[in-house]
Every structure is written in structure tokens, then in C-alpha cells.
Nucleic acid binder design. Structure first.
Lengths: 336, 336
DNA sequence: AGTTATATCTAAATCCTTTTAAATTTCTCT
DNA sequence: AGAGAAATTTAAAAGGATTTAGATATAACT
């Protein structure tokens, strides 16, 4: 049973391929096809399991109705939640989502961007980049395809983006800790620390200390490598507590670190401290609702990132948004 | 700066489009292009930022190098982990992944399947279906496109699938509870319960009771609706404990239910029981490593599902696998 | 009726590859 | 040198839609 094509419809209906194509694409009026003919065609085709060949259509029109999404790790609930919301918006508008994980690997990201932005397989690309600077993205041959950055952005690169207010959220939660009585707050940061999100959070932390007149001490900021979180957190805490017995709060810059921190503090080695330390985390996860330990957290509007980014992308594709659009979503502190 | 195409290369290199296309596709030898010419072409093109138009290629060859993935909820870590592994395998082989979430909505699943299986936009579809029976999938017009089911399968539908041994895992963990001394074990199931995964887990639970000579009692099996998990679990526990004061273990059929259960048991209302109840869960999540409560769980080889399904899909696409392939992966009990 | 304007419809070009079938060049051998 | 075989290369067709430019039918007007 061969696939039907316009040629077949033309024979069966007695109208030209041209006319049928016009009607099927809703351009009947525009091209002056009579109402009678239009309904005749639509009725006849409705019976007939015909769908236009996507490739032929894309070849001719240059539109694929695909949007690409590039993130560091699609299995990370943060990104998969964004993906879900993007997919939802796109589906409503007849678009499909192509998802790729870079696994924090710059080489893979390059290949993916190359493929998506240069090979015109997609109508637009939404990306959370692992890159440090914009030189790669800032090439003329990439400028043809609409681009929206999410979550992370590149310094000095003028493009569309939807991010959250990492600086503000961080400032707020650390200030909250201070008001709650904390005097010495450690910060467990993550490398690669050049990511805009991390940088902003660290700056928020520092500025909160300044504003609240606490002593700044770089020894209180520890780097946790994203590939060895558990071990690094444990070492960091051991060091911190040895050097700063008066430590009274720890601020984890993301949920993975907070999770590792909670695990660490349950060990016998730390049992004397566990009760005394307040814990804060940038990112709010279900776990915090289940454990006894009270964790104060910054909740990010994750769904909103996806929704905003995809709507923005569609506007750009449709030519409704010509200037670069920059969206910064605000966060909320969750006390417990 | 216009996109380069074969025509341009032809003019610049002084060879025909045909020859260049052949060489670029690695078919130089096959078509008897001289070694000298081949290297000349390859060298010249390497300088020139040319990539073939995907749509023209797909139109001519009928291959899109896209594989579709349809799951109930891409933001669910279970599925997003599968997605990540699928994407990884596909990327290595030059394929891309198109991801769609049905949101447990049959209508959306129909539209997606229609689009993917009937509109030949993708070379194959991997799906975790929300459907109850196979009548929709079992249509001749869908048979053209390779199909691999994952996680959930449809009764009596002869197709490729990669699933885990839900029955066996369930049997094992419940037997484990019994050996550990439990005499009365409740089961928190989830609706829609016709999903093959759920059905198998319930059957494993029942058979474990029989094998271990415990009394079966349908009153111990509670249905939790997937859209009101927290409330349903709380009600279920209230009922169970009222009617069965000697209850000594609760078996949650998935991680969401276990999470809700843990939250519920922390409430004052249940504090007298919390210590006495053993908890088991089908699915192993990081949370269980962080909380004090010892949860025994069934760990599923989630990554393996994705890897197996995508490798199988590629084999089918490449014609290496003609018979239907059925893979059942086994689980592991994690004690704590 | 004959011409012009208007409403409908269609043939052919186009998008850019890959592949088939055929043409050309080179080589081998008498 | 010339015929036939082998080695290279290319012109043209095909894939299936959309769109341009043009054709035909109908209406309107003198």
C-alpha cells in the first residue's frame, strides 16, 4: 500500500496538484480558489489518509518545524523539566523538539551547534551552553538560525536569553541566613565555575556578606568538581570544620551539592556538627520536604524558563520579535 | 553569504555534481572514481564549509537520521535517564533524537504516533505507551516504520520491546520482606493499573505472598491515582492502619508513591507506626541514601533500557534485525 | 458580438540531493 | 592504427512538495 501523494490526489479529485496544495495549506482564498472547490477538496482529502511528505515540504519551504534543544545533561531534572515545558509549547504550535545532551563536553557541543545552526536542519536552537566565552557562537555562519540561550549565558555576547536571577536569589538567601542569626557561612561552589550561573551565585553570596557586614573570607568558599561531588564535599567539610570551628551555616550552590552535603553530615564523623549547621541551597528539591533537617532554599521558576524560551523562539521564527530579547526571571526563598 | 551547494562545488572543482556527491558519501570506490580524483575532491571540499542539505538528502534517500522517542513524561528522571542514554547511542551513530511527552494523555499519544509512524519524518520510534491495548498501534499503515516499545508493553501485540522484569523484581523484594520477618504487607499500587509494569508488579506481590504462605487479602492493596498521589497515600495509610493494626510493612510500587509515603509517615498522626513499618519500593532513588529510614528497594537497570532499545532500533533500521526482538532486563534488590 | 477585466485554475519551475543510465576517456591487444 | 574492453566521469531523472507565471473560463461593458 503505497503512500499517497499529491499526484494521486490530483488524479482522484480531478484538480491540479497546485490547487490541492493551495487548499490544503489554507491558502485557498489567498489564491482565489472558489469556496465550492475548496470544500470539495477538503472533504475528499479528509477521507484519504494523505499527509504531505515532510522532506519535500521542508526542502521547498526551508522550514522544518523542528526546534533544537542543547543542554548539559538531559537526565538532570532541572533540564528535563525545561525540556518538557518547551516540548509542550512547541507541540501546541505544530513544532517538534530535538533534544541533545552535551554531557558538559565542549567538543560535543561544538558538533551539535555546527549541525543545528549551520546545517539548517532546525528552525531554531535553544541552548544552555557549557562554553566559557562566545567566540564559537559568534560566527557569521551561525547567524542565520535563531538562537535563544537559557539558564547560562555568555559574557559580552549579544543574543536572546531567558535566565533566572542567580545573583539576586543568592543575595537574598544568604541575607536570610544572616538575619536568621548565622555569623559564619561557608559556600560550596561548583566547577567549572566560569558558568554564568555559578559566578552570579558566588557574587551574590559575597555581596550579601558585605551588605550584612560579615567578614569576607575566601577560605570559606570551596570548589566542588562536578564529577566528584561526594568526595569533594566530604573533604571540603572536613577542612572547613577543622579550620573554622565556629562555622554555623553552609550554602550549597546547587541541588547536587546539597544532596551530597546532607549525606556527608549524616556520617558519624560529623554528627557533632550536624545539629549546629544551618543549610541553604540554591534550588529547591522535593528531598527537602522529606528529611528532618530544615533546609532553606531558593526556588527557581524552572517551568517558566522553558515556557518563556519556547514562546520567544516561536516569536523569533515568526518574525514577530526582531530585537534581541533578554528575560531575567526572579526566584523565591523557601523557608523551613 | 549564500549556503554552498553541490552546484557551486561542481563549478569550483571542475567535477560534476554526481562525482562530488559520490566521493563525499564515501562511495568513490564503489563507483570507480580514481583515487587521485577522490583525494582532490575531499581536500578541496574540506576547505569549503559545505554541508549537504538535509531535506534534499532525506527526500531522495528516504532516510531522516531521526529517531523519535515518546514517553509519558520526559521530566520524570526515569524517562529522562533513558532519553539521555538513547541520545548518546544515537549521536555516536549520526542519528538525532526527537523527544515527545504524552503527559499520560492518550489523545496526544495518538497524534504523536500518527505523526511519527505515518508521516515518515523519522526512521524509527521508541515508545513507552500509555495505551491499554494494541488496537491503535496494530494498524497496517504504521507497519512501515520500525517500532520498539520500552518499559511498558501491550498484551498480545507482537513487536520489539525492551522492558525490565517487573514480575520477578516484585516477587523478589516481597519475598525479601517476608524473610526479614514481615507477616502482613500492604501494597500501594498506582492507577492506571492496566499498565503492564504495574500489573506485573502487583502479580509479583501476590505470588510472593502465596509462595511464602502468607494470607492474601485484597484489602491490603490500595490504588493511588497518579494525579493525587500525596492525598491518596495519606488516605490509604489511614485506612490500612485502622483496619490492620498488625500491618508491619508497606510496599510502594514506584518511587513517587514511596516518596509520598515517607512524607506521610513523618506526620504526627503516624508517628507511632513509623518505627514499626518496614518500607519497600520498586525503584531505587538517591533519596533512600539520605534519609534515616531504611528502605529496601528494587533497582532497575534504567541506563540499560535506553542503551538496549537504541541499539536494537539501529539494528532494525540497518536491516540487521528482522525478527521481533524481546528483551527483559533483570533487577536487583538493594537492602539497607 | 467583441473587447476587456475578473475569477479560477494549471503547467512548469524550483528546492538540492542521490542514483541510474549513458557518455567519454584510457588501456590492451592484434 | 584501430577495435574492443575497462576505467572514469557526467547528464539527466527522480524524490514530492510549493510557488510563479501563465492559461482558461466567466463576467462586464461598450
Amino acid at each position: 500500500m503505497k503512500r499517497l501523494q499529491l499526484e494521486d490526489l490530483s488524479k482522484q479529485l480531478g484538480y491540479s496538484k497546485t490547487l490541492i496544495s493551495m487548499v490544503l495549506n489554507g491558502k485557498g482564498n489567498q489564491y482565489g480558489i472558489s469556496k465550492k472547490t475548496q470544500t470539495a477538496v477538503l472533504d475528499a482529502v479528509a477521507q484519504l489518509d494523505y499527509t504531505p511528505n515532510k522532506f519535500a515540504k521542508a526542502l521547498r519551504t526551508g522550514k522544518s518545524y523542528f526546534v533544537g534543544l542543547i543542554v548539559a545533561d538531559i537526565s538532570n531534572p532541572f533540564y528535563s523539566t525545561i525540556a518538557k515545558n518547551i516540548e509542550h509549547v512547541l507541540f501546541e504550535r505544530g513544532y517538534n523538539l530535538m533534544v541533545c545532551s552535551t554531557e558538559e563536553n565542549e567538543e560535543k557541543e561544538k558538533r551539535l551547534v555546527e549541525m543545528m545552526l549551520n546545517q539548517q536542519g532546525v528552525d531554531g536552537v535553544i541552548v544552555s551552553t557549557t562554553f566559557k566565552d562566545s567566540s564559537f557562537y559568534d560566527q557569521p555562519r551561525f547567524a542565520k538560525t535563531p538562537l535563544v540561550f537559557i539558564d547560562r549565558l555568555l559574557p559580552l555576547f549579544n543574543t536572546n536569553y531567558v535566565v533566572i536571577d542567580n545573583y539576586g536569589g543568592s543575595l537574598e538567601i544568604v541575607s536570610h541566613l544572616v538575619k536568621d542569626g548565622s555569623k559564619k557561612i561557608a559556600c560550596l561552589s561548583i566547577s567549572p565555575s566560569y558558568l554564568s550561573t555559578i559566578e552570579d551565585r558566588v557574587n551574590g553570596y559575597k555581596d550579601a556578606l558585605i551588605k550584612n557586614k560579615l567578614k569576607q573570607d575566601n577560605d570559606l568558599i570551596k570548589m566542588i568538581h562536578f564529577e566528584s561531588i561526594n568526595a569533594d564535599v566530604e573533604n571540603a567539610m572536613r577542612e572547613l570544620l577543622a579550620r573554622h570551628p565556629d562555622l554555623d551555616a553552609v550554602y550549597a550552590l546547587n541541588n547536587h551539592i546539597a544532596t551530597a552535603l546532607l549525606k556527608t553530615l549524616r556520617k558519624k564523623e560529623f554528627e557533632n556538627y550536624n545539629g549546629k549547621l544551618k543549610i541553604a541551597c540554591f534550588d529547591d528539591i522535593e528531598l527537602f520536604n522529606i528529611i528532618d533537617k530544615k533546609v532553606v532554599s531558593v526556588s527557581q521558576p524552572i517551568e517558566e524558563i522553558g515556557k518563556n524560551a519556547s514562546l520567544l523562539m516561536l516569536d523569533i521564527i515568526d518574525g514577530k520579535q526582531v530585537n534581541k530579547s533578554n528575560v531575567v526571571l526572579s526566584t523565591k526563598v523557601i523557608e523551613r
